[in-house]
Simulated scan of single mutants.
Amino acid sequence: MKSILKVAIALVLTTGAAQAQGINIGAKGSLNLTNIPKFTVIESLGQDLKYMATGGGALFAEIPLDANFSFRPEIAYNRRGGKLEGLNLGSGTIGQIIGNLANARLNLDYIDIPLLFKYNISTEGEGSPYVVAGPSLGFMVGHTMSNSILGLIDLNYNVNMNFKNFDLGGVVGLGYEMPLNGKMKGFVEATYRQGFLNAVDNFGPVKVDSKTSNFGISAGVSFPVGK
């Protein structure tokens, strides 16, 4: 874990001295809708995971490549997973009643390192729309299941479903940034992240489909350094 953080910090904060005067650094917070749309383990029980809301945050550096393009590496914390609305507790009356009153959330915690390229659609005027795209590396740092019954009883426990420690995905997004006080800029951004690898390894010969997807809305600030 320490080596992951060292690599991430180096990616975010290190660049060539020749371009240091043009670098911006910043932070953002995110509201995410996340799911594992085709989770084989859950589908085998006759159920499916639905999108759940989670929070996240990131630190980033923005390194200009030319007038419109920049490289934006990040280090981020995000929670992925999904939720069950009503548990399958059997065909009996009691099982159906309790199952309909209960819900469950699969929480997969990641340190992500998105390596994004940003293109400013317009550099004229005070505000600027932009697009971002690029790969994202993910390192799982936790996995839990949480249950709530009638909103009164909350159960949280660790689960081990042969989870993979590494995740690889792709990110695309659209944003708008605007000047704030001084040289500081503010921005809002909408992104979509699709996992390319399964979050759960196969169980022997049984193949498990468990690729994550995530819609995010973010807001943040950035400011120049080195000058």
Rank of each mutant, 00 (worst) to 15 (best):
R72E: 13
N78D: 13
G138L: 10
L87S: 11
I42Y: 06
I121H: 08
N88E: 01
E62M: 04
I98E: 05
T93I: 01
S136Y: 06
N100L: 08
V131I: 09
D112H: 01
M52A: 12
N35D: 02
G55C: 00
G138M: 07
S70F: 07
G55K: 02
L33C: 08
I113R: 03
V131H: 05
N78R: 10
P73R: 03
Q47Y: 09
N68Y: 02
L59G: 08
T93P: 06
E124A: 06
L33Q: 13
K83H: 15
S128F: 02
L137E: 10
G99T: 00
Y110H: 14
K83Y: 14
N107D: 07
N35M: 12
I75L: 08
G99N: 01
E62V: 08
G56M: 04
Y51C: 07
L106N: 10
D112A: 14
R105G: 09
G99P: 00
L45E: 14
N68R: 14
A76K: 06
L89W: 11
G56N: 12
P135I: 04
G90A: 05
D109H: 11
G46F: 07
I36A: 04
L65I: 15
N35V: 10
L31A: 10
N107M: 02
G86Y: 00
E85D: 14
A58E: 14
V41E: 04
S122K: 05
G29R: 04
N88Q: 11
T54Y: 04
D48F: 05
G90Q: 03
G90S: 09
T123I: 03
V131Q: 12
N107F: 06
G92A: 12
L108M: 15
P73V: 04
L65D: 13
M52K: 13
P114G: 11
G46W: 03
G125I: 05
Y77P: 06
Y51R: 05
E62I: 01
P64T: 05
E85F: 11
Y51L: 08
I98L: 15
G127Y: 09
E43S: 07
E62P: 00
L89P: 03
G92T: 15
N35P: 07
S136I: 12
Y77L: 13
L137P: 15
L87V: 06
D66N: 15
I113G: 00
R80M: 06
T34K: 07
D66E: 00
I94M: 10
S122T: 12
G55Q: 00
G90Y: 03
D109V: 00
S44Q: 09
G46N: 08
L87A: 13
Y130K: 07
A76W: 01
L101V: 07
Q96R: 14
F60E: 14
I75T: 07
K38S: 13
A133S: 15
